[in-house]
Amino acid sequence: MREETVKRIYIFSPSLRIWHWVNFLSILTLFLTGLYIGNPFFIGSVGHEATYAYARNLTMDFIRLIHFSAGYVLLFSFLFRLFIAFFYKGDRLFIPKVWRANFWKGLVEMVLHYIFIKPWHRTYVRNPLARLAYLLLYLALAFMIITGFAMYGLSDPSGFWAKLFGWVVPLLGGEFMVHMWHHWFAWLIIIFAIVHVYLVIRFDVIEKEGEVSSMFNGMKNFKETPVDVEDVA
């Protein structure tokens, strides 16, 4: 064992860690309420006249209210996430350095490693495959925010949200298709989350990098100096 060589590197800023958990909660809320809105599979107002059921029970109206509120949280936390990336180097790890040959080499290496062809990989603060995945996730979140607020705002086609995001509707082939795309991307994000949780646990258990605790204390353990250490130091 070479425990004496373990390096603890501070990676995740407090802002990023807070954002991560806010983001987690809002996505979970949005997904669960969104599933109900897409397919209302239970009646939450049994025994009440529709007129008086408002907000008394788990009605569609109430679930939509939660969905829209969580949508606002997602929007502003997303803006916050972009904002902090300007101020701290370690918050810019989601940028894949596609202009460097090393990035592409590393990407191939990680893929080969994950399909068990290559038994080892170089140590990274954030490996190229993960960088690409996080960028795609951020794009998916932006897509959800844009389509979500477009649908939300088009109750009033002359209003603020409709002016800001209304352009997306004809682009996706009508508002019905916006609903469908919003639904499909929700599932993509959840599938990302499943893989994300698995890989975090995997790095924690197999590579012993302290991945899970890093999102609480900001530190990760490395047995050797990561190739891309200049991105946080």
């Binding site: 239970f42 009646i43 007129t51 059921a53 408002y54 788990l58 569609m60």
Partner: peptide
Amino acid sequence: AFFNAGQF
């Protein structure tokens, strides 16, 4: 009103 109440 039935939509808002979740009655479908």
